[in-house]
Design a protein around this nucleic acid. Sequence first.
DNA 1: CTCCTGCATA
DNA 2: TATGCAGGAG
Length: 212
Amino acid sequence: MAETPALDSVDPVTAREFRAAVLEHYRLEGRSFPWRDTHDPWRILVSEFMLQQTQTIRVLPKYLAWFERFPDMECLVDAPLADVYEAWRGLGYNNRALRLRQTAREIVSDHGGSVPVDERSLMALPGIGRYTARAILAFAFGKPGIVLETNIRTAFIFHFFPGAVGVSDRELEPVAAATMDEADPRTWYYALMDYGAWLKKREPNPGRQSAG
DNA sequence: CTCCTGCATA
DNA sequence: TATGCAGGAG
């Protein structure tokens, strides 16, 4: 890291005010989910696999049923593929269920059964890219990092690039860095996601741009 | 960069 | 019925 001198595209006062507003919104209207009530890295990992492709409302019952059937990582490692697909049914993208089992297997075989705590190792696992790796680090381990996801992009664009279309992640990253709550990235990103989701409900399509 | 998925929505 | 989605992979 540290090749681009991240100049402040957001001054500290603006960043602080933005943080305060988002956290206040979270306090008033923040959502509650079972995967937010745990720090268990495996549970958070499973939730992120599901949330990659499916909205929270539909993930919720599947997530709960999943852990009824596969209470821990080892249960999934040993599970027949047919059982895995059956538990996944309704979420779509069956290949990702396969990748989730493969990730469980690799965590057991290569990491002693513990979800790795570094981005590179996480990204080496099948089905885990930059977003999911950093989300796991933030939500399970409280490690700060730049996490860009659709709702978070919406929140940043709405406030810092109002009306703009096609804002790139390269442009959003300095904003993410300047506004992040290093002391509590977990709460911060929950709040930011909820705020973005809330904005989308009110004003559809404030703009999106995929990763590069 | 493009392609992929399985569902939701237009 | 066609297109959009949202993240990972190639």
